[in-house]
């Protein structure tokens, strides 16, 4: 049974660092949501200058690999800011990771937000206006609640992609579940890289499944009693 013990202790060791991964996930999710909504607003309302900047930014984020963006932020940003006499070399590595992940994810989230908003449709606004609401009231009370429910599937996918994106953080030294591979190798005898990565993949898989379950439960709860497009 020592084999079972090995695997069990392996799981425990990997799970030990799961909070770090989840921390990255949560913080960058919140930040990218704020930024994503802002970008979505810019794109919907088409404020000229900002719209151009937003389009440029979106194109960059979606046409270059996350890894490149991460390295640019971690290695390149300090170099850039040094010219302005700002030294950020002493900042915790985590900050760079969070900035990079947030910027990257905001690009994709803005599209999720925008398409959900458009899917609700002008009719809902018109109905709200016709009973005397202002734009803001219509937004808060009628449109956004519907847009949120509509966005849930895409939002769920986005969160899962973000979780998988965090797996790149170890390349700049973050000790999350990916980062502690060296540590585990040192502690365990006879356990090789293959076993470690199997365990890591199972943990990612499990977390993704949990996220999917949460999202679909949320969808069911929020859709209670409402007519949906598909026949049940």
């Amino acid at each position: 049974m020592s084999v079972m013990n090995d695997w069990f202790s392996l799981f425990i060791q990997v799970l030990d660092k799961l909070p770090i991964t989840l921390f990255m996930l949560l913080i960058s999710l919140v930040c990218s949501l704020v930024l994503g909504v802002a970008i979505a607003i810019v794109r919907i309302k088409r404020f000229t200058v900002l719209y151009q900047i937003a389009t440029f930014y979106l194109s960059f984020c979606r046409s270059t690999p996350l890894l490149v963006q991460l390295f640019l932020v971690y290695f390149g940003l300090p170099q850039l800011l040094l010219a302005f006499q700002i030294d950020i070399n002493s900042l915790d590595r985590m900050i760079f990771v969070l900035i990079s992940l947030s910027l990257h994810n905001a690009a994709y989230l803005s599209e999720v937000v925008r398409s959900a908003y458009l899917a609700v449709g002008e009719d809902q606004f018109e109905a709200a206006y016709s009973v005397g609401m202002t734009y803001t009231q219509a937004l808060w009370r009628v449109v956004l609640p519907q847009a949120f429910v509509l966005s849930l599937p895409n939002l769920g996918n986005n969160i899962i992609e973000l979780l998988k994106d965090t797996s790149l953080a170890f390349t700049i030294g973050i000790i999350d579940i990916m980062g502690q591979v060296r540590i585990i190798l040192g502690n365990n005898h006879g356990i090789g890289m293959f076993e470690i990565y199997v365990v890591i993949s199972l943990i990612y898989w499990g977390t993704c499944i949990l996220i999917e379950m949460v999202i679909s439960t949320l969808e069911k709860v929020l859709k209670k009693g409402k007519v949906s497009l598909s026949k049940s």
Binding site: I160, I200, Y204, I209
Partner: peptide
């Protein structure tokens, strides 16, 4: 499909890289 979509590509790469020799 659930496994592939629920695990990072990087991890899948490593699994093959270290798994095939084993």
């Amino acid at each position: 499909i659930s496994f592939i979509r629920g695990t990072p590509l990087l991890v899948q790469l490593y699994v093959f890289f270290y798994g095939v020799p084993v």
